[in-house]
Protein backbone atom coordinates (compact mmCIF):
# COMPACT_ATOMS: atom_id res chain seq x y z
CA UNK A 1 0.00 0.00 0.00
CA UNK A 2 1.41 3.36 -1.01
CA UNK A 3 0.27 6.83 -0.15
CA UNK A 4 -0.54 7.44 -3.81
CA UNK A 5 -3.17 4.68 -3.68
CA UNK A 6 -5.10 6.60 -1.08
CA UNK A 7 -4.76 9.82 -3.07
CA UNK A 8 -6.06 8.06 -6.17
CA UNK A 9 -9.07 6.68 -4.33
CA UNK A 10 -9.91 10.03 -2.77
CA UNK A 11 -9.30 11.77 -6.11
CA UNK A 12 -11.76 9.50 -7.91
CA UNK A 13 -14.39 9.94 -5.20
CA UNK A 14 -13.94 13.72 -5.35
CA UNK A 15 -14.17 13.73 -9.15
CA UNK A 16 -17.34 11.64 -9.02
CA UNK A 17 -18.85 14.02 -6.48
CA UNK A 18 -18.00 17.09 -8.58
CA UNK A 19 -19.36 15.40 -11.70
CA UNK A 20 -22.55 14.59 -9.80
CA UNK A 21 -22.96 18.22 -8.72
CA UNK A 22 -22.23 19.47 -12.23
CA UNK A 23 -24.73 17.10 -13.82
CA UNK A 24 -27.36 17.97 -11.28
CA UNK A 25 -26.98 21.65 -12.08
CA UNK A 26 -27.27 21.24 -15.82
CA UNK A 27 -29.40 18.17 -16.43
CA UNK A 28 -33.13 17.80 -16.57
CA UNK A 29 -33.97 21.02 -18.30
CA UNK A 30 -34.35 20.50 -22.01
CA UNK A 31 -32.44 22.06 -24.85
CA UNK A 32 -35.14 22.58 -27.43
CA UNK A 33 -38.84 22.42 -28.01
CA UNK A 34 -40.44 20.49 -30.85
CA UNK A 35 -43.83 21.51 -32.18
CA UNK A 36 -45.84 19.05 -34.23
CA UNK A 37 -49.20 19.58 -35.94
CA UNK A 38 -51.12 16.35 -36.59
CA UNK A 39 -47.88 14.40 -36.46
CA UNK A 40 -45.86 16.62 -38.82
CA UNK A 41 -42.97 18.53 -37.28
CA UNK A 42 -43.56 22.26 -37.62
CA UNK A 43 -40.19 23.10 -36.16
CA UNK A 44 -37.64 22.65 -33.40
CA UNK A 45 -36.61 25.77 -31.49
CA UNK A 46 -33.90 26.29 -28.87
CA UNK A 47 -35.12 27.08 -25.36
CA UNK A 48 -32.28 29.56 -24.92
CA UNK A 49 -33.94 32.27 -27.03
CA UNK A 50 -37.28 33.87 -26.27
CA UNK A 51 -39.59 33.44 -29.22
CA UNK A 52 -43.23 33.68 -30.29
CA UNK A 53 -44.28 30.88 -32.61
CA UNK A 54 -47.64 31.07 -34.38
CA UNK A 55 -49.02 27.60 -35.10
CA UNK A 56 -51.35 27.10 -38.08
CA UNK A 57 -53.33 30.32 -37.48
CA UNK A 58 -55.08 28.72 -34.54
CA UNK A 59 -52.59 28.80 -31.69
CA UNK A 60 -49.49 30.51 -30.41
CA UNK A 61 -46.58 28.90 -28.55
CA UNK A 62 -44.19 31.11 -26.59
CA UNK A 63 -40.69 30.44 -25.33
CA UNK A 64 -39.92 32.72 -22.39
CA UNK A 65 -36.95 32.41 -20.08
CA UNK A 66 -36.25 28.82 -21.06
CA UNK A 67 -39.85 27.71 -20.48
CA UNK A 68 -42.56 27.02 -23.00
CA UNK A 69 -46.29 27.62 -22.79
CA UNK A 70 -49.31 27.83 -25.05
CA UNK A 71 -50.13 31.54 -25.03
CA UNK A 72 -53.22 31.22 -27.14
CA UNK A 73 -55.40 28.61 -28.78
CA UNK A 74 -58.81 28.89 -30.40
CA UNK A 75 -59.82 25.43 -29.10
CA UNK A 76 -63.00 25.19 -26.98
CA UNK A 77 -61.61 23.42 -23.91
CA UNK A 78 -58.47 25.57 -23.38
CA UNK A 79 -56.72 22.67 -21.63
CA UNK A 80 -53.48 23.50 -23.43
CA UNK A 81 -53.58 27.17 -22.42
CA UNK A 82 -54.24 26.22 -18.81
CA UNK A 83 -51.20 23.90 -18.73
CA UNK A 84 -48.36 25.38 -16.69
CA UNK A 85 -45.17 26.28 -18.62
CA UNK A 86 -42.91 23.30 -19.31
CA UNK A 87 -39.11 23.04 -19.35
CA UNK A 88 -38.13 19.48 -18.40
CA UNK A 89 -37.23 16.84 -20.97
CA UNK A 90 -40.24 14.66 -21.78
CA UNK A 91 -42.86 17.19 -20.71
CA UNK A 92 -45.52 17.94 -23.29
CA UNK A 93 -48.43 20.27 -23.82
CA UNK A 94 -51.09 18.91 -26.13
CA UNK A 95 -53.95 20.69 -27.87
CA UNK A 96 -56.06 17.81 -29.12
CA UNK A 97 -58.73 19.83 -30.93
CA UNK A 98 -56.04 21.47 -33.08
CA UNK A 99 -53.78 18.41 -33.19
CA UNK A 100 -50.82 20.32 -31.74
CA UNK A 101 -48.16 18.69 -29.57
CA UNK A 102 -45.42 20.75 -27.91
CA UNK A 103 -42.62 18.68 -26.47
CA UNK A 104 -39.33 19.39 -24.71
CA UNK A 105 -36.35 17.60 -26.24
CA UNK A 106 -32.93 16.92 -24.76
CA UNK A 107 -30.72 14.27 -23.23
CA UNK A 108 -31.75 12.34 -20.15
CA UNK A 109 -34.92 13.53 -18.49
CA UNK A 110 -38.14 11.54 -18.53
CA UNK A 111 -39.41 8.85 -20.85
CA UNK A 112 -42.95 9.93 -20.15
CA UNK A 113 -44.64 12.49 -17.92
CA UNK A 114 -48.03 12.03 -16.28
CA UNK A 115 -50.16 14.69 -14.66
Amino acid sequence: MKKNDLFLLLGVLLAAFLLFLGLRLFSGNGEAVEITVTGDVLGVYPLSEDRIIPVADCAEVRIEGGRVHMAFSDCPNQICVRHAPIARVGQTIVCLPNGIAVRILGDGGFDAVVG
Binding site: A84, P85, I86, A87, R88, G90, Q91, G109, F110, D111, A112, V113, V114, G115
Partner: peptide, 13 residues
Protein backbone atom coordinates in the same frame (compact mmCIF):
# COMPACT_ATOMS: atom_id res chain seq x y z
CA UNK B 1 -37.80 3.87 -17.30
CA UNK B 2 -38.08 7.32 -15.78
CA UNK B 3 -41.63 8.65 -15.48
CA UNK B 4 -42.11 12.27 -14.41
CA UNK B 5 -45.14 13.30 -12.38
CA UNK B 6 -46.24 16.86 -12.98
CA UNK B 7 -47.10 19.34 -10.31
CA UNK B 8 -50.47 21.02 -10.95
CA UNK B 9 -48.79 24.40 -10.41
CA UNK B 10 -46.11 23.71 -13.01
CA UNK B 11 -42.86 21.85 -13.15
CA UNK B 12 -42.33 18.25 -12.20
CA UNK B 13 -43.21 17.23 -8.65
Amino acid sequence: WQIGIENPDGGVE
